[in-house]
């Protein structure tokens, strides 16, 4: 079972952090502390989001996408709040959070569709 859990957590977290860091650089964030903040904020939200989705998927009989969307919304809000409070160079923290999460969420869906 451990062989199934660690890849689930690791791949999701690793991919999310990579995509959001790249997105941060693309949109012009160069302040190193803010780039580290993106990493830490995703460490905070991604495992929790994966865990919530995992538990809800087992115990609630609903379409998978319907479960993912409210979880992602909660992650977007939490990340936005952290960026607003702690980021030095992210001018629009909630817009950044929404865009970064759409990118990571959508990329995950594309990869799921391909593989």
């Amino acid at each position: 079972m451990i062989n199934d859990i660690l890849p689930v957590l690791g791949i999701s977290l690793g991919l999310t952090v990579f995509l959001e860091e790249v997105f941060a650089i693309i949109v012009g964030i160069r302040y190193s502390k803010d780039l580290v903040l993106v990493l830490l904020v995703n460490l905070l939200t991604n495992p929790a989001a994966v865990l919530c989705y995992y538990i809800l998927a087992f115990y609630i009989e609903m379409n998978i996408l319907v479960l993912k969307i409210p979880i992602e919304l909660a992650a977007v809000i939490i990340e936005g709040l952290y960026y607003r409070k702690y980021a030095g160079s992210i001018k629009k923290p909630f817009l950044f959070s929404v865009s970064a999460n759409i990118l990571s969420f959508g990329t995950g869906l594309i990869l799921n569709a391909i593989f």
């Binding site: 959508g106 990329t107 869906l109």
Partner: peptide, 13 residues
């Protein structure tokens, strides 16, 4: 570029 990626993500949804 960012817009193109976001459109792809929307299509994936």
């Amino acid at each position: 570029k960012v817009l193109a990626v976001l459109v792809m993500c929307f299509l994936a949804v």
